[in-house]
Amino acid sequence: MNIKQFLDSTYLKTAQQASVSETETIEINKKSIQEAIDYNFKLIMIRPEIVSMAKKMIYEANSKVTIGTVIDFPLGQNALEYKLKEAQKAIDNGADDLDFVVNYEAYKKGKIDLVKEQVAKCTALGLQNNKNVKWIIEVAALNDSQIIGLCTLIKNTVISNFKENQYDNVFVKSSTGFFQTQNNLPNGATIHAIKIMLENSFPLPVKAAGGVRNYEEAIEMIKLGVKRIGTSSAKAIVEGLDSKNGY
């Protein structure tokens, strides 16, 4: 198994979140992109403002690493027009994967049609431009019933609006890695949540993100059936080390 091809190596902190300067943030991102190139990870996942830099570095290195970015991150509560505009800019800048945060709070309030429209139209934009689309549902903000319902909504919206040969390009993703939980509970991909997602998202693939920090955890997720793993610990995973990174 080439575990590297499951790994979306991830750095999504702003300068403020990392308590560093903007200049230092650029350098951290450069290092992350170069690491993805050196290790030949499947993808480097970065914030939208970094996509152009990543595209240039990967092109100059003649690398096959792909580029992912997050849309309406980390809360997912902006309007459809915002999501579409941010996604289009990311596409124009060279992103290959678009990881949208679904409006899970709207879903929890029963605004089902709003969520369906966002999923349908944002997915269409991505697929029309030959991009992979991932929908982050934020499992730590949901109970089991809500995870089931939101996975089912995304699955049914995709099945209703797109062709079967496009299903593999639309993922359901567990977490942003930034959700603040109480009592230090997990905020990302737990085995329990991933099993629920796999059962209720099929035939769409699942991406486990948040909290996968070593080789054993990554292998466990792959054996469950996930097709991608989003992690800031990609280097540690392939080197068989434990990481204390938060995402």
Rank of each mutant, 00 (worst) to 15 (best):
K121Y: 06
L127A: 15
V139I: 09
N143L: 02
A140P: 08
T152I: 06
V139N: 11
A140V: 09
T152W: 08
V119A: 07
G149F: 11
N143E: 02
L150C: 04
I148S: 01
L127E: 12
I136D: 09
T152V: 04
I148A: 04
G126N: 02
D144E: 10
I147P: 01
A124M: 05
N130D: 14
V133M: 09
V139F: 12
N132Q: 14
T123F: 13
C151R: 08
V139M: 07
I136C: 05
K121R: 14
I137H: 10
K121C: 04
V119L: 01
L150Y: 06
Q146F: 00
A120G: 05
N129T: 12
L142P: 02
N132L: 15
W135N: 15
V133T: 10
A120E: 11
T152H: 12
Q146E: 06
D144R: 01
Q128L: 06
Q146C: 00
A140G: 03
K121E: 11
K121M: 08
G149N: 11
I148V: 14
A120P: 01
I148W: 02
I137R: 11
N132A: 12
G126M: 03
A140R: 03
N130H: 15
N130C: 03
A141L: 13
V139T: 15
I136V: 11
L142D: 01
N132C: 07
V119F: 06
A140S: 15
L127C: 15
N130F: 11
L150V: 09
L127V: 14
V139R: 11
K134D: 08
T123A: 14
N129Y: 14
K131A: 03
A141Y: 04
N132W: 12
G149H: 04
N132V: 13
L125H: 03
I148C: 03
W135H: 15
T123H: 12
N143S: 00
N129G: 14
N129I: 07
Q146D: 01
A140E: 08
D144P: 00
L142R: 09
E138C: 04
I148M: 02
V133K: 13
C151V: 05
I137E: 05
G149V: 04
A141I: 03
A124V: 00
C122L: 02
K121H: 10
A124S: 13
K134V: 09
C122F: 07
I147C: 00
W135Y: 15
N129C: 12
C151A: 10
N129W: 07
G126D: 01
D144V: 00
I136A: 11
W135I: 14
K131H: 10
E138R: 03
N143I: 04
L127I: 14
N130Y: 13
K134S: 06
L125G: 06
L142F: 03
N143W: 02
C122I: 11
I137F: 08
A141N: 11
C122H: 06
A141R: 14
K131Y: 12
L125M: 05
K134A: 05
A141C: 09
N143V: 06
I148G: 01
G126H: 01
V139H: 09
I147A: 01
I147R: 07
S145M: 00
V133A: 05
T123W: 13
K134Y: 05
